[in-house]
Design a protein around this nucleic acid. Sequence first.
DNA 1: CCGGTCAAGTGGGTAC
DNA 2: GTACCCACTTGACCGG
Length: 266
Amino acid sequence: MGFDDICNTGLVLGLGFSSTADYKSKKITTPLVGKGPSLGLEPSLTLSLISGDRTYEQQPIKISKDHQSADLYRQDSAASSYSNASVKRERDVGSEETTTEVERVSSRVISDEDDDGSNARKKLRLTKAQSALLEESFKIHSTLNPKQKQDLARELNLRPRQVEVWFQNRRARTKLKQTEVDCEFLKKCCETLTEENRRLHKELHELKALKIAQPLYMQLPAATLTMCPSCERIGGGVGENPSKNAFTIAQKPHFYSPFNNPSAAC
DNA sequence: CCGGTCAAGTGGGTAC
DNA sequence: GTACCCACTTGACCGG
């Protein structure tokens, strides 16, 4: 139905979001966390009649001066900072007890820290090469199976747990970024729909004013102003032959109502 | 010094 | 019970 067809009153405008989200997630604390439009939130603007019977990367890698030389296997950056202070995830520790180069390096570095007497958590900064390889891998698959994790860890000279954590954090960053993008998208939708709502309200107002100015028989609901099936004339009588199509009040115009019997229209 | 970034810790949930 | 994921948090580090 075109907007021009709206010539009766009883119209209602609505602006809002309809949610079709089907969430698997267990802990959704904020409605927008996740994927705005892709969440199933669809912005909508509705105009309805009330009448009788119906009523939507890549994080910059910050490399410290210490790690300017991008060496994939620099152990001081790769494994130096793995804290042994309060690691509760024994399963990883256990699984890593299959002896590898990585673990030997890690334990060496950890013992270095112990020699220090420092128990503080040190921050690992991945090298450019490590980050690049992780990113490449993430592009291929955002989650890893155990074998992929092991292989990647071996290749990067990191612990499998570190690879796992990197992927977890990477997924979280992706999600956050997507949320921000969706948020922007929804803001724009909201602005557009608000503007559309304003425009429709204005048109509605104008049409109401027009209705008041019309003669009584012109004020019939739009649905009653359909074509007469017998003579194919529309009420209002505008055609190329004025003498045939024009009508007067006395002639009783050929208004056809679906509520009447069509055969009895003429 | 402060705010941002990010690796890592923690706790809870789910699947198998 | 284990392994994994996710949300949230912590703490180290860095640049302005």
